[in-house]
Simulated scan of single mutants.
Amino acid sequence: MKTIKVIKIGGNIIDNKEVLATFLKSFATISGPKVLVHGGGKLASKLAKQMNIPVKMNEGRRITDAETLDIITMVYAGKINKNIVAQLQANNCNAIGFSGADGNTIVSIKRPIKTIDYGFAGDVKKVNTKALEVLLNNTITPVFCAITHDTNGQLLNTNADTIASELAIGLSSIFNTELYYCFEKNGVLKDIEYEDSVIENINTKSYKTLKENNIIFEGMLPKLNNCFHAINKNVQKVCIGKSDMLFNFNNKHTTITK
């Protein structure tokens, strides 16, 4: 069984043209099947402000009304996604841009209203890998933005970390899957002020202890929940750190294990 890498990049790479160009040049050299998932960075919020559309957030998550959905669809599935695909083509990596609606790859439902109405936010329910399998077996790299659909014509804003996790799980029936979350830190840190305080391995038991002692909290919790969800659903390896870990595995990073 072949090994596939599912790699998620965030705003720290997307928001800087030079950093993005360097990353994509290196990404193109990764051998074997691979999938790239990207978030939206700051561009959607910047454009919303220029158009006098309020940017509403709750605990780091965007509240997506109809106007905001239009903007993020243009930015995520349009400008950012197509720019990445074009740069990969320039680096001899044949790529195709995807939202979850393309090829019916990722189906979501609109998030139910509990205490907060997140609007057109989607929670992933199903990943269909048939179209992806054909592309991957023909050395074509899918590039996913953070947009899914509900099969009834509605696009939905969906967390990019979740998309990466669900794609890795979905592809695990065809490949040995490895999931990499690239962000601005060297990994999960014991001390947020000290960049070298990387926790090199976290398992289910140590994760519980780290949460109880408030070493891991707030923004890192949803990311790690996605990691453990993946590792418990047949994903072979999950790593968090700077993108350098993809090209030099000796670089410090955090590995998630059962």
Results as ranks from 00 to 15, higher is better:
175 F>G: 00
175 F>T: 01
178 E>F: 09
180 Y>V: 00
181 Y>W: 08
181 Y>L: 03
182 C>F: 08
182 C>I: 03
183 F>Y: 14
184 E>Q: 13
184 E>T: 07
184 E>H: 14
184 E>R: 11
185 K>T: 12
185 K>C: 00
185 K>Q: 14
186 N>W: 10
186 N>R: 10
188 V>T: 03
188 V>M: 02
189 L>R: 10
190 K>N: 08
190 K>Q: 12
190 K>M: 07
191 D>C: 00
192 I>T: 15
192 I>K: 15
193 E>C: 04
196 D>G: 05
197 S>L: 00
197 S>N: 05
197 S>M: 02
197 S>H: 06
198 V>C: 01
198 V>S: 03
199 I>V: 02
199 I>L: 05
200 E>A: 05
201 N>E: 15
201 N>Q: 15
201 N>T: 15
204 T>C: 10
204 T>E: 15
205 K>I: 11
206 S>T: 14
206 S>K: 13
207 Y>V: 01
207 Y>H: 09
208 K>A: 11
208 K>V: 10
208 K>G: 10
209 T>H: 14
210 L>G: 05
211 K>Y: 11
211 K>T: 10
212 E>W: 07
212 E>A: 05
213 N>T: 10
214 N>I: 03
214 N>V: 01
215 I>H: 06
216 I>Q: 09
217 F>I: 03
217 F>M: 04
218 E>W: 06
218 E>T: 04
219 G>S: 08
220 M>P: 06
220 M>F: 09
220 M>C: 01
220 M>L: 02
222 P>T: 02
223 K>H: 04
223 K>E: 04
224 L>W: 11
224 L>G: 04
224 L>V: 02
227 C>G: 04
227 C>M: 05
227 C>N: 08
228 F>K: 05
228 F>L: 01
228 F>Q: 05
229 H>M: 12
229 H>Y: 15
230 A>E: 11
231 I>C: 01
231 I>L: 02
233 K>Y: 13
233 K>W: 11
235 V>F: 13
236 Q>Y: 15
239 C>K: 15
239 C>P: 09
